[in-house]
Design a protein around this nucleic acid. Structure first.
Lengths: 219, 219
DNA sequence: ATTTTTTATTAGCCAAATCAAATTTATTTA
DNA sequence: TAAATAAATTTGATTTGGCTAATAAAAAAT
């Protein structure tokens, strides 16, 4: 059974909300994420329930079944592999990949997916540092912390970003912050929690608390 | 203005029929090609006419406008570049590429298209020997002839095939016939026009007249 | 324990792209 | 030229995935 793009997008949204471990995956949350009217969500959730891709009830919200989980994970896997491909092989920058990957993730071809994966050497993380699920849906984990929690004086490495929007990624580029780059925390401003950092041993810049919460790093 | 897959497919079909220089591109021909009901074609042709992508009238049939031509050609270009990519970079065989390329041709991203083209070295022909339109819609031409018109004794090179169906392409594989391969015409059977050929200086096989009309060759 | 607020659902509607069946218009052919 | 055939169109329906506005139900606050 091959699903529509819309169905795959709903499953992906439910998967993402599950990952963020919300107590309850409700109608509104899905609507917000997909920029869709809650009334439409009701209909689709019912349809997905009928197709046994989710279990849905008004009280309990939506939960992926084993089958739905498989579809969702595969879609995410495709999205992230395509993003990696675009950056690694086609000279895309990390802020250019999202929209194209949103389209490419719906292409149906197992061989295509396998070959892209092979060509890339079975990558575990995408250009934003997000883990690429393996074929069983297993995710590689890195025990990272938001930059906002790093004490003064510590030198850390960027491993992922918590916001893949063009605006944020371009901002990071401008600051010289990139995946695997080094950041030295020089000074935390008490009054607003903004931080002064040294990027790659060179430039010194101020980062807002907001930004520092979206940059994940390890020692 | 970005068009739906359906719209792009209609334009592509009209383009293809134009290439085959039919006197008149009628409803039925489009319906046959897209496996769609003629009643549906009427509606869509009207819509495309309204959008100034074609000029359509009951008497005159359908003709691409400059704008419609651009869209059609770009779609064909995408299709053939993707086919080439799949074969050259992802280990697909020429009989595996069509269905995937039918999906990929609708991905909207100029950068993606340009980068794939660059990665492949700006190829002029796809894995079936069909020309890849350049950005202006210009096609490279090879003055080939169907194998059915080659006289006994001639040694020729395969440059394209006139049927991209899985069945036909697999049949050619089985016979050892591939793009750029050499064929020596040994004997033309008078009664049914089937031909005995020598493939790549080795194997001898019989080809039906039917098949020989779909294999295009040059001296 | 009510009232208020938030969330979900219903009802009715729309657009895109298709279909089948009936009808109209064109084209052949007798 | 009239009848027969072929092609195109109309009509009315369907499916998919949306929408808005009104209502119902649940949760939170008073």
């Amino acid at each position: 059974m091959t699903l529509s793009n819309a169905e795959e997008n709903y499953l992906k949204a439910i998967y993402a909300l599950t990952q963020e471990n919300r107590e309850r995956i409700n109608n509104q949350a899905i609507a917000d994420r997909l920029l869709i009217n809650p009334a439409s969500v009701t209909d689709m959730l019912r349809k997905l329930d009928e197709k046994k891709l989710i279990e849905y009830s008004r009280s309990g919200g939506a939960h992926l079944t084993k089958e739905g989980f498989k579809v969702a994970v595969k879609t995410v896997r495709k999205h992230r592999l395509w993003e990696t491909f675009l950056v690694e092989k086609l000279n895309f920058t990390w802020d250019e990949v999202h929209d194209v990957a949103e389209q490419l993730e719906h292409i149906q071809s197992d061989k295509l997916l396998d070959e892209i994966d092979k060509l890339l050497g079975h990558p575990k993380f995408d250009p934003h540092g997000d883990p690429i699920p393996d074929t069983n849906g297993k995710l590689s984990r890195i025990n990272s912390s938001p930059l906002s929690e790093i004490p003064e004086g510590a030198r850390v490495k960027v491993v992922s970003v918590g916001d893949n929007s063009t605006a944020f990624l371009r901002y990071l580029d401008k600051q010289g912050i990139s995946l695997n780059g080094t950041i030295l925390v020089k000074e935390i401003q008490e009054f607003d929690q903004s931080i002064l950092v040294e990027i790659k041993g060179k430039k010194e810049v101020f980062l807002s608390a907001e930004a520092s919460r979206k940059i994940f790093v390890i020692k």
